[in-house]
Simulated assay, not measured.
Amino acid sequence: MKVVFIGASSLATATAERLLKEGHEVIIIDNDKTVIDELMERLDCVFIHGNGSKPAILKETDPTSIDVLFCLTKSDEANIIASLVARSLGVKRVITRIEDHEFEHICVELGLNDTIVPTLTNARYLANIAAGRNILELSAAIRGNVRLFSFIADEAEEGTVDDLDLPKHTRAIFFYRDNSYHTADRDTELKKGDEVVLVTTSGEYEQLHDKWSNGKAR
């Protein structure tokens, strides 16, 4: 597997180190030459010095051959732009890190469905620990070829969940309306602007991505 990181953050380097031990190909892009020089002594991978949101820099990685690209710089805006550029160049899967959770809805609208918000995730986890709650981790619940997919409903999706004509093994499990959580079943009425979350398989995920690649139906 070929994995590229934009931004040599501590999260990026720790993940890269694990992937290298498992025998995967890793490329790290960063615009700080000093950081790259230091990491070259620790990590046996390819380094590219430059701005990872620039098409010319990303083209050096042969984008269409990348299996996963992580955008992990310290700037939410830079990560979003880099993600969009990477997707336009044919990268198969892009993971976007954001710190400001207000960008999360925007990422979904842009079709950046693989978005992580580390601060918010850690805060929820620590709050649950403090409260003594035994919360089932998503990583333990999602196994094998099971995937989650979300999209923003447009006029075309207004109607019932059953009207979405989802693939055989895909189900709508819940949705957000005005940032409020609601469960979903076949008769649930959807409105424009609802963020709908689906549980699906790896095979059907691609069908969903093709249909809602920009966060809206085509």
Rank of each mutant, 00 (worst) to 15 (best):
H101K: 14
H101D: 15
H101I: 13
E102S: 13
E102R: 15
F103E: 13
F103C: 01
E104D: 12
E104W: 05
E104N: 08
E104M: 07
H105K: 15
H105L: 09
H105E: 15
H105M: 05
H105V: 08
H105P: 00
I106V: 14
I106Y: 10
I106D: 07
I106G: 03
I106Q: 05
V108M: 11
V108N: 14
E109W: 03
E109G: 13
L110Q: 12
L110N: 11
G111H: 10
G111A: 02
G111D: 13
G111V: 05
L112W: 06
L112I: 03
N113L: 01
N113K: 08
N113H: 08
D114P: 00
D114H: 07
T115R: 07
T115H: 09
T115N: 06
T115C: 02
T115Q: 06
I116F: 01
I116W: 03
V117E: 13
V117H: 10
V117Y: 05
P118C: 08
P118H: 11
T119Q: 14
T119H: 11
T119N: 12
T119M: 04
L120D: 15
T121V: 06
T121R: 10
T121S: 12
T121F: 09
N122M: 13
N122L: 10
N122W: 03
A123D: 14
A123F: 12
A123W: 10
R124E: 15
R124V: 00
Y125I: 03
Y125M: 07
L126I: 12
L126C: 02
A127M: 13
N128C: 08
N128F: 07
I129M: 12
A130V: 10
G132F: 01
G132M: 04
R133V: 01
N134V: 06
N134S: 06
I135H: 09
I135F: 05
I135M: 12
I135P: 05
L136I: 06
E137P: 06
L138G: 01
S139K: 12
S139V: 07
S139Y: 08
S139F: 03
S139E: 15
S139H: 10
S139W: 05
S139L: 03
A140C: 00
A140M: 01
A140I: 00
A140P: 00
A140F: 01
A141Y: 14
A141D: 13
A141I: 06
I142F: 00
I142L: 13
I142R: 09
R143A: 06
R143T: 14
R143M: 07
R143L: 09
G144A: 11
G144D: 15
G144I: 00
N145I: 02
N145L: 04
R147F: 03
R147K: 14
L148E: 15
L148Y: 14
L148A: 05
F149D: 11
S150W: 01
S150P: 04
S150E: 15
S150H: 07
F151C: 02
F151E: 13
F151I: 04
F151P: 09
I152C: 08
I152A: 08
I152Q: 11
I152L: 11
I152G: 00
A153T: 05
A153V: 02
D154G: 14
D154T: 14
D154P: 03
E155I: 02
A156S: 13
A156C: 04
A156E: 15
A156P: 02
A156G: 02
A156H: 10
A156M: 04
E157Y: 05
E158H: 03
E158I: 01
G159V: 04
G159H: 09
G159C: 03
T160D: 10
T160M: 06
T160Y: 04
T160A: 03
